[in-house]
Design a protein around this nucleic acid. Structure first.
Lengths: 140, 140
DNA sequence: GCTTGCGCCGCAACTGAGTTGCAACAATGA
DNA sequence: TCATTGTTGCAACTCAGTTGCGGCGCAAGC
């Protein structure tokens, strides 16, 4: 039932003081319904016929959602951003898994990431990005 | 003395059975002389006037050097590859540091990276990519 | 040293992700 | 309902990286 996600999405957006436009709700609901991180292309494809957005609008909306902490974006080696909804128990610092076969990207929540990396003197730690690569169950 | 790097570069290329062309030697020497990972743009700028290469040649040469294990390439969040020479003591699996101020990227060799990540059942580990972000000594 | 074949190089054109400027539109608050 | 202000769509752009192809040059063989 996608309706549930639309309702949740609208709530999340309003609680952040943003205008609850059809585009924002649809995009966030799409990401909430997804078990993996997906690209802007995949988001476009999953949006209903009744909600066809311009590419630029999609990019700007995703940017807004990232800035407001409702989703996060993931760097990959194919030069394409992937996006994933921020669920509550989601730690902000977590690792990702990318399948080298089908390019699927999922979040690995149960990885405790230490923050004490031995950096050169004078360097300051901010955050960490960790991607484990391998084959998913389907591609093995 | 850049000559030393040119000599080393030529040796490395010949030992891998490749043609020791001016382009390959120059690019590899440039990367050997560098303390950090640099982009294709930066490589272009550092090449001597006498060795101005076409962008395509640069990309193809870098690809060849990567395939032959003489350099490695690093994914970043600005969608630009960075390249670094593979020194002997360099472990193939190592982490990188990226300064969020000046975009400088260096290799962190002394990070022991474990290979036993708790992946979902049926998933197979291949490799890991780890980037620590923060501020370098100059940008602090 | 000279020739020759294969591999490397340069050029031109292309792809595809992401960005910018601007005018038109619509969600919200009064 | 109306006005304001933030959001959207369009067009054009940037920039990294890729592809096809003709031609040049490195290295092997003589």
């Amino acid at each position: 039932m996608l309706n549930k996600f639309y309702h949740t999405a609208e709530d999340m957006i309003r609680h952040h003081g943003g205008r609850a436009t059809a585009g924002r709700i649809g995009i966030l609901a799409t990401l909430l319904a997804e078990q993996q991180a997906i690209t802007h292309r995949e988001i476009e494809q999953r949006l209903p016929q009744s909600l066809q957005l311009d590419r630029v609008t999609l990019y700007r909306t995703l940017e807004w959602l990232v800035e407001n902490g409702l989703i996060h974006k993931i760097t990959s080696d194919d030069r394409v951003w992937r996006y994933n909804a921020n669920l509550e128990p989601h730690s902000h610092q977590h690792a990702h898994f990318k399948c080298t076969g089908c390019a699927q990207v999922i979040c690995l929540d149960n990885l405790p990431i230490e923050q004490n990396w031995p950096l050169p003197t004078g360097y300051r730690f901010q955050e960490i990005e960790l991607t484990v690569k391998g084959l998913c169950a389907n591609c093995c």
